[in-house]
């Protein structure tokens, strides 16, 4: 009974623990790791806004993050140097906190989103993750070469007639949607920790790109599995335990 009860949350988180460290490698490549935190906060605000409006929170969170991911490109020229992500982060955080403070029904969900209550994941969320993660990994694989080439040889990329915008918008959308999905299950900081720390550690030692992806994936998976067990054993919210686990990994390895 208890095994069944925790299997759904475990599998839901497992799917995300596969996707997020890999996604984080490409965010780190583009020096856009702040995007993870921005999209998580925007998604939390979108979920709370949807709840207050009587709509499904998950749909609100995903829609808000998608809008932020696609809309960011419109202001890219004026908001360089990560300013777009900082503004999104602050706007998302302010809106989420204000909604939680002033709307009783938003307060509980707000706590869940910021605490990261993976154990409340339902089978509907598991299905969403089970469908989304393979699609996201497929898209990431398709974008991978262009993302790497555009970073290392921007002039070569352009001169070969390769268009930058499908890669940029495609990646921004992918990152926004993946982070929204992760925030709904792992919480804002749990999702950020899985995106940021495994690639940061993996990139220090890996000898090539493939090894970097593999190390990041393994670090993310190990931290997730250990954190799941520890949070369950200590009866603590999952998000902070995962974040502490990854910080400890980071300090030991670094």
């Amino acid at each position: 009974m208890s095994t069944d009860l925790f299997l759904i949350p475990f599998l839901t988180g497992l799917g995300l623990a596969i996707l997020l460290p890999l996604l984080g490698c490409y965010l780190r490549l583009r020096d856009e790791w702040l995007a993870a935190l921005a999209y998580s906060h925007v998604s939390a605000a979108g979920a709370l806004l949807a709840l207050v409006a009587g709509l499904p929170p998950a749909a609100g969170g995903i829609a808000a993050a998608a809008l932020a991911g696609a809309g960011k490109r419109l202001f890219a020229a004026r908001l360089s140097g990560g300013a777009a992500y900082a503004l999104l982060l602050l706007a998302g955080w302010s809106l989420a906190v204000l909604l939680a403070a002033n709307q009783p029904q938003a307060e509980r969900l707000g706590h869940a989103l910021f605490d990261g209550q993976l154990y409340f994941s339902s089978s509907a969320q598991l299905w969403l993750v089970a469908i989304s993660v393979p699609v996201a990994l497929g898209v990431l694989r398709l974008l991978s070469r262009h993302l790497l080439l555009a970073h290392t040889y921007p002039d070569f990329f352009r001169i070969r007639g390769l268009r930058a915008w499908p890669t940029q918008i495609g990646f921004d959308l992918l990152a926004a949607l993946a982070l929204a999905l992760a925030t709904m299950n792992l919480g804002v900081m749990g999702a950020f920790a899985l995106v940021f720390i495994p690639p940061w550690l993996a990139f220090r030692r890996a000898r090539d790109w493939r090894a970097g992806l593999l190390r990041s994936l393994l670090l993310g998976l190990v931290a997730y599995i250990v954190a799941f067990g520890v949070a369950l054993w200590l009866d603590q919210p999952f998000g902070p335990i995962l974040a502490v686990m990854l910080v400890a990994f980071g300090l030991i390895v670094a």
Binding site: R28, R145, H151, T152, Y153, A206, D208, W209, A211, G212
Partner: peptide, 18 residues
């Protein structure tokens, strides 16, 4: 110079890209 500091990119990776 291609910005590769801090990235796990080998020479073989770079050659494969082009």
């Amino acid at each position: 110079v291609p910005p590769v500091d801090g990235l796990p990119l080998s020479g073989r990776d770079l050659l494969a890209l082009t």
